[in-house]
């Protein structure tokens, strides 16, 4: 079986991500990885919950004085929408429509960049106020948790962009279909983590 074989929408398998042994193994391995990522983020959430609002005596920074909900809301909407656009991309991938898939991935990347820009603005703003990584235990745990998520966003964006560039002239085949599928799973996972971040860090932070 030549992996670069060309297909038509009618001959394209219903589950291209799982039609080759390599695809099956990748999917399985990727879910093991996501399990590990879940535990990684759990450690960071646990640390943040234990250390939030803790710092030097008389510290002026707290979740209630720092966080602004409108910004968190816009970031949430951007990331949630980008999750849907990557669902659209995978829908077109399964229909063997390469151009539509690439187009939806471009939208996904743009929304992700918007999210990242707002996060950088947010961190810049806090540092400007004097709330830095080394300022308090609260600061360290906050930047580690939210920053690790932001790093995942950067990796997810780079992954999508590299896939789109690498395969731009190649089109879809059973070799790269699992790659796109896994990148999109990773992107959904980033949104899963963000759901907990906006709830536990921002909303519950503002609640006090």
């Amino acid at each position: 079986m030549d992996l670069n074989k060309k297909f038509t929408p009618q001959s394209w398998p219903a589950h291209p991500e799982n039609s080759t042994l390599e695809g099956k193994n990748k999917t399985l391995g990727f879910w093991i990885f996501l399990g590990g990522e879940t535990v990684l983020f759990a450690t960071l959430f646990a640390t943040f919950l234990a250390l939030k609002n803790k710092g030097p005596a008389g510290m002026e920074f707290s979740t209630q004085s720092l966080f602004e909900l409108p910004l968190a809301f816009i970031m949430t909407m951007l990331l949630l929408t980008s999750s849907l656009t990557s669902v659209y991309a995978m829908y077109h991938m399964k229909n063997y429509n390469f151009k539509a898939m690439q187009a939806w991935l471009i939208v996904t990347v743009l929304l992700g960049l918007g999210f990242l820009g707002l996060e950088i603005y947010e961190f810049y703003h806090y540092v400007h106020l004097g709330f830095t990584f080394t300022q308090s235990a609260f600061g360290s745990s906050f930047y580690t948790l939210v920053g690790t998520h932001g790093l995942h966003v950067i990796i997810g964006l780079a992954w999508f962009i590299l896939l789109m560039l690498r395969n731009s002239k190649r089109g879809l085949n059973l070799y790269n279909a699992p790659k796109y599928y896994l990148a999109s799973l990773y992107w959904h996972f980033i949104d899963v983590v963000w759901v907990f971040i906006f709830t536990v860090v921002y909303l519950m932070g503002v609640l006090g």
């Binding site: 996501l34 879940t38 759990a42 646990a46 234990a50």
Partner: peptide
């Protein structure tokens, strides 16, 4: 996939409970 993620969720829940 569900087996791995539910296992991870169980560990995550235990860890957060312990820290908190």
């Amino acid at each position: 996939a569900q087996f791995f993620m539910y296992s991870a969720a169980f560990i995550a829940f235990t860890m957060i409970l312990a820290f908190v």
